[in-house]
Design a protein around this nucleic acid. Structure first.
Lengths: 230, 230
DNA sequence: AATAACTTTATGTATAGACATAATTGAGTC
DNA sequence: GACTCAATTATGTCTATACATAAAGTTATT
């Protein structure tokens, strides 16, 4: 007789995999399952809720619980600090600030973030190195009022990447991956030839109050891969 | 006085954002918070557990709950069926099977999946179209014993992508994104010039019993982006 | 037939109380 | 000091019960 919610979780997943509970069909309700497993409804609820969060089940009040037609699995990407990503490979981390300025943000970018004309932004270009070799080239726009203290931060000591994670945790944002040919600047800094296919990441993060915090474009060195776990 | 676990969740997140609860410091224990909020410990537990799952808190028995030093946020990617991705843009979905064969799997690939020499695999190359324009080029290896019935499936009617999701749900796997220059085949099929930077996705999925199920390499048409939500 | 109002039902959530478990603390021992 | 073992403690989980809520179903009303 199953006891813990994890046992029930496991058993339910088995039934889904074995198609004993077929896709797009209703499964028994919580009360019945509780009786079958000899536990309380709360325990069944805990197990089924976890399965629903993972995408295996779809639950609706009154309508009941059904096995997802095409289990919408969610892949998870743990966003690491570049430092941690590099050190996890056993390589030595270093970074070099290439430029830092109070330049005006181009309006297309500003519009994308929903910032006003007079928003104070700072632009920082940084090269990240692994064992001395170029690893990633970062072009970062920081909205100063969302990251107080950034303008006076010593970025030589703490990389922009680390400084912001520690001082201005964001609440939500988006991450876009695409492929782009290396331009003059990328080719020069990353040490590859013009036109090389590079993985490009564009991240925008927002603070608690819906205010844009940062917009970051990162070009990785050739052959870089991002791995997601499913 | 807060009542629901979501209220407590919100308030706790506010304290984290406002640094009232600073990174790397302990927060009050569940019993104390329950008293402060005027609710039961189970309710506090629900809220804090959710925050821990989202990466804001780190919890350990006896040691207590602390705010994550560098909140390891997890980005989530809902893996959509190509059909749904295309139709969500209001475009017409279509696919074309380019080749289908029982060819032997190259040993480097086989090794990567941990398959034995005599594993029966089928290879299918498919072009996916959005409004008639090339959208993605897929090269798929399917381990037949992990996907019974695949060899006789009518892939003209149901795309390999959809067939497998519906008939052989996987339990876990990995997803790798990288950038690659278009080769002859990709350029021809996707209608771009040789060497164009393409976003490339490599996915391997495994069934319940640790058996490899599929290995898929997809090249997307130029300028494609993948978006993750944080 | 369309609409509104009520009933039913399955999930969602809150509670008090209890015990389980992991990990730290501290006492006692060598 | 180094070690063992027990006490302590915060989180983890289970139970029974109750009520809330959303959505489907049903009936009454226009």
């Amino acid at each position: 007789m199953a006891q813990s919610w994890q046992d029930i979780h496991k058993e339910a997943l088995r039934r889904i995999h074995s198609r004993e509970w077929a896709p797009d069909t209703l499964i028994p309700n919580e009360a019945d399952l509780a009786e079958e497993f000899g536990c309380s409804r709360a325990t069944v609820n805990r197990a089924l809720r976890a399965l629903a969060e993972a995408g295996w089940l779809e639950r609706r009040r009154k309508a009941g619980t059904r096995v997802a037609r095409a289990p919408q699995r969610r892949a998870q990407l743990a966003i690491p600090l570049l430092r941690e990503e590099i050190e996890a490979r056993g390589q030595r981390f270093a970074h070099r600030i290439l430029s830092r300025s109070r330049s005006k943000m181009p309006s297309p970018l500003r519009a994308a973030l929903g910032l006003s004309d007079d928003a104070q932004v700072e632009r920082v270009q940084t090269l990240y190195l692994a064992d001395g070799h170029p690893f990633a080239l970062e072009d970062r726009w920081v909205h100063l009022s969302a990251a107080p203290g950034f303008e006076t931060a010593d970025l030589e000591k703490t990389s922009p990447n680390e400084w912001l994670v520690q001082h201005a945790p964001f609440s939500h944002g988006t991450l876009d991956y695409s492929a782009a040919p290396a331009g003059d600047f990328e080719a020069e800094q990353l040490g590859c030839s013009l036109g090389t296919a590079l993985l490009c990441m564009q991240r925008s993060t927002f603070g608690p109050g819906e205010r844009a915090a940062t917009l970051v474009t990162t070009h990785f060195a050739p052959n870089h891969r991002v791995r997601l776990e499913i």
